[in-house]
Nucleic acid binder design. Structure first.
Lengths: 395, 395
DNA sequence: CCCCTTCTTTTCCCTCGTCAATAAAAGAAG
DNA sequence: CTTCTTTTATTGACGAGGGAAAAGAAGGGG
């Protein structure tokens, strides 16, 4: 049993209350009647559940709706008071710790980054503690308590147990990060995979609100994918899921670090793009930003590299669409800076390669400031606060 | 509202009762205490739910366990009385109607096939009615009532509404098959996609019992895939899901009828194999059986065709494993007759192409008599009988 | 014959959510 | 200005469903 530090606990104990709160949280101000409709509960149940939540300050009566219909008693919308509680989200990358301070509605209230010299668990913990301490002092200025910390790590993470099973990037195995960090920072800590955390943020606070089946595709150094099926984030039986980056796109393609050839990541990952641009132009391109510049400058051969990358990503998304039939695909990640360079290819390839009505799935892109990853971590902390027993809550 | 004919209805009204019954149904004879453990309910709740089910004859006390431990009151296992109710399953193919009679435990009690001359809805309905009538007379001899009919059709099927949205094979669009068939046969009818139906059978009565995440891959004329995620069969937001057959394996591969190149089905589907064997040998091979014979006879080039097919299937499965991380993959279908010809390739490719621990997923094969498809349909009827309101019940 | 162990049942209780009736807050109608 | 209509919110009685605890049942062992 991981020690749970003594902090305020959320006053919604019944499943119905959590469901009602979550609905209001992600679907904005809603009248009680509207909540009842969306949760398939009776209006009476909503009233009863809402009352203690208002008393505890988590919900507030919203200003009456301007565009109210002429007839009947005016509706009395309710919304979550974001300022009632604060949360921290921390993203651990190979060389940096990125932290954000968010409110209960997962709006960013502060941010902090710190370089990471050593990737071993202890130094990482220390670095996390530093970032957390700084953010806590920011929180202090706001005069609101921090109710939980979420940590996002790439790799195989067991959120229920709070253990990092295996992170190739950090070279960790079976590190009980939640427990360790919780002892260090004195707050409840939730640990989850980074892409899943981002997916949680979209599910509760982003473009996935109200959807029971969607996918988040991240384009950057790696190509990742978070899946929501039946309203729940997919975690995979063995900790692996959403590895769209290692879907084979062309068995004769370039070798991938995973040992295969022609993975999406081996064609459209940042490193792969830089390499291909270098090969195509002879210019000693250093990073993705330089490659994008070359492309925009019209250097011959560079656009073709991005076109191929777009095709690879499109095929990866088409595969997801064929297998799961999501309602929407949300494309995100640092690589979106170059989105104009492959948008068309992604769309075209998806349309061509998706089977039947799978091609109908809506594709959205969202710009991703780097703090977004940390915000995802905060979203998992918010989930854990609201539904402490459910390791992978549904919509 | 589809008319529901007057028949006996299942006496488990509460969610807990359904859950308890389902657990006993698929997990064999269980003591009440064991049921309580597996459903996370209290022993008292189990006793209360079991009583009316025994009174109604759906559950029976099993013979006491032989290998009982020396201590304490002997356990009193309970099991489902399969003979208490009968169901029909009907699979509609392009040229044939296949029907089975099963008991409540989905054990086959009879079978009937009838050729299909015309694929239009009306002739198909007539043919279904004929097969159903014959099976009903078989049921009559058993002296047990038939409580529902399941119909499995390939294509985009909306089970909740009982409508075949689009079936390319039959060239149907928006046919309200459940309603029509129900009127014709005078019994409740459930309509579902064929691969999903097969998946349901595995989930409740086969190799998927107790698993919350697994995949069923069917190898035959087409290559299909049923997915169970979070304990529920995946249906897809637009009716498409599990289209593993149209996952691209080699963008430079042979053209597929779907318009792309190098789909799994274009390499490993029955038609594709026959074509490739013909090309490789010059022999005028007619069907898959002949191709298998040639392969076993050692005709040069034929085994290579199967090897390529196995590789394609393996890549498809690896893709599923990478994206969803299932606990198990169940390979099934008529094409299994040639399983020895590609077993090795499937395994090897899966191991190589799966990312990280995704390769750990267990792969099982099950021989598939053709009635199995119809049995899947019966399984959906059993589900509908037990949980009438839930179109896609969980474990 | 009594005790011990384990499974099952009973009894009581409590929680949660629905139902139905009521209150509340407007504008509309007269 | 009063009364009616319409819609939203609240209240309180009721009941179903499941849990806790204790008793009962069915053996074996001392």
């Amino acid at each position: 049993m991981r020690p749970t530090p003594r902090v305020e606990t959320f006053p919604a104990n019944t499943p119905a209350a959590s469901q009602i709160f979550t609905t209001v949280l992600s679907q904005g101000p809603l009248t009680r009647l509207e909540v009842a409709r969306r949760t398939a509960l009776s209006p009476a149940a909503v009233t009863k559940a809402v009352k203690p939540l208002i008393e505890a300050g988590y919900l507030v009566e919203d200003a009456a709706d301007e565009a109210r219909p002429a007839l009947g008693r005016p509706a009395n919308p309710v919304r979550v008071d974001g300022g009632r509680a604060l949360f921290l989200g921390v993203k651990v990358t190979g060389d940096e710790i990125i932290g954000v301070l968010t409110d209960l509605c997962c709006r960013t209230r502060g941010a902090r980054r710190a370089p990471l010299a050593d990737r071993a668990p202890q130094p990482v913990l220390t670095a996390i503690a530093d970032v957390v301490a700084e953010l806590l002092s920011q929180a202090n200025e706001l005069g609101v308590g921090v109710h939980g910390v979420g940590v996002a790590v790439s790799g195989d993470v067991d959120r229920a147990e709070g253990v990092v099973r295996y992170s190739p990037f950090l070279n960790w195995r079976d590190v009980p990060l939640a427990e360790l960090a919780s002892l260090t920072v004195g707050l409840p800590v939730t640990v989850d995979n980074d892409v899943r955390a981002l997916t949680v943020a979209e599910q509760w606070f982003g473009a996935g609100v109200g959807l029971s089946d969607f996918a988040v595709v991240t384009v950057g150094a790696g190509i990742g994918c978070g899946l929501v099926v039946h309203g729940r984030v997919v975690a995979g039986a063995h900790g692996v899921a959403g590895e769209i980056g290692h879907v084979t796109v062309d068995p004769a393609g370039p070798p991938c670090h995973c040992g295969n050839r022609g993975c999406v990541e081996a064609i459209a990952g940042e490193e792969a793009i830089v390499r291909q641009v270098r090969e195509a132009t002879g210019v000693e391109v250093r990073d993705a930003a330089e490659a994008v510049t070359l492309a925009h400058r019209g250097v011959p051969g560079v656009r073709e590299v991005y076109a191929r990358a777009g095709e690879a990503i499109g095929r990866g998304i088409a595969t997801v669409a064929n297998l799961l039939g999501p309602e929407r695909v949300i494309i995100s990640g640092e690589g979106l800076a170059a989105y104009d360079l492959f948008a068309e290819q992604i769309r075209d390839t998806l349309t061509a390669a998706a089977f039947g009505s799978a091609a109908q799935c809506d594709v959205q892109t969202r710009p991703l400031p780097f703090e977004e990853w940390a915000r995802g971590a905060a979203a998992t902390a918010i989930q854990s606060f609201i539904t402490p027993d459910d390791p992978h809550p549904s919509r």
